[in-house]
């Protein structure tokens, strides 16, 4: 009989945790659907080191395009130069209820990321590092995270977090839907 209150307490504590977990999972799938709705097409904007609010380098122009593929289960993000050649590419996809990404980086390595935190207030999904291929040395630059923030239908921020020689860095891409 003494076990019953303990058992009830355990269940009572477990339910909100599982609910939060399910809520988190379903948020990623909902966010992916938002990505499918908002991202496809051409974007233009600027990028700088640091954050959007506190850039630590001069803003530089950039163009990005997004394509959907594979039965709406993957989104290809291409950062292109002035000759429309791809500089780097990220492919986002669903793995059941989890958003995953592989980033084919200008540093010539290919980190994989998994969605871990969804901030409803800012509509930002944070993907964190899982593993990386083709890293020549541990000290080489490689991305460790991607924050994808959908501000509205025509404005998106993508922030890459990186690590090189033990030092963290961020680079933010502020994109607006292209009219062309």
């Amino acid at each position: 009989m003494k076990l019953l209150p303990m058992f009830a307490l355990l269940i009572a504590g477990f339910i909100p945790l599982t609910s939060a977990y399910v809520d988190e999972l379903s948020n990623e799938r909902v966010f992916f659907n938002k990505m499918l709705e908002v991202l496809p097409g051409n974007w233009q904007g600027k990028y700088a080191d640091g954050t959007y609010e506190n850039p630590t380098s001069d803003w530089q122009p950039i163009e990005v395009n997004y394509q959907i593929t594979s039965g709406d289960t993957a989104i290809i993000e291409n950062y292109v130069d002035g000759n429309e050649s791809a500089i780097m590419t990220t492919v986002y996809h669903l793995d059941n209820n989890d958003i995953r990404a592989t980033h084919f980086c200008g540093a010539q390595n290919h980190p994989r990321m998994a969605g871990r935190v969804f901030d409803r207030s800012s509509n930002t999904l944070s993907l964190n590092f899982v593993d990386v291929s083709n890293l020549q040395t541990p000290a080489d630059y490689h991305s460790r995270g991607i924050d994808l923030k959908i501000i509205d239908h025509d404005n998106v921020h993508v922030t890459f977090s990186g690590l090189e020689n033990g030092e963290d860095s961020t680079r933010v891409f502020a994109l607006t839907r292209s009219q062309k």
């Binding site: 394509q67 593929t69 290809i76 291409n78 050649s85 791809a86 500089i87 780097m88 590419t89 084919f104 980086c105 200008g106 540093a107 010539q108 390595n109 290919h110 083709n134």
Partner: peptide, 13 residues
């Protein structure tokens, strides 16, 4: 088919 990632990857679409 196009190159990306500083020629470290080939995308096939």
């Amino acid at each position: 088919f196009y190159l990306t990632g500083n020629d470290s990857a080939i995308v096939e679409y």
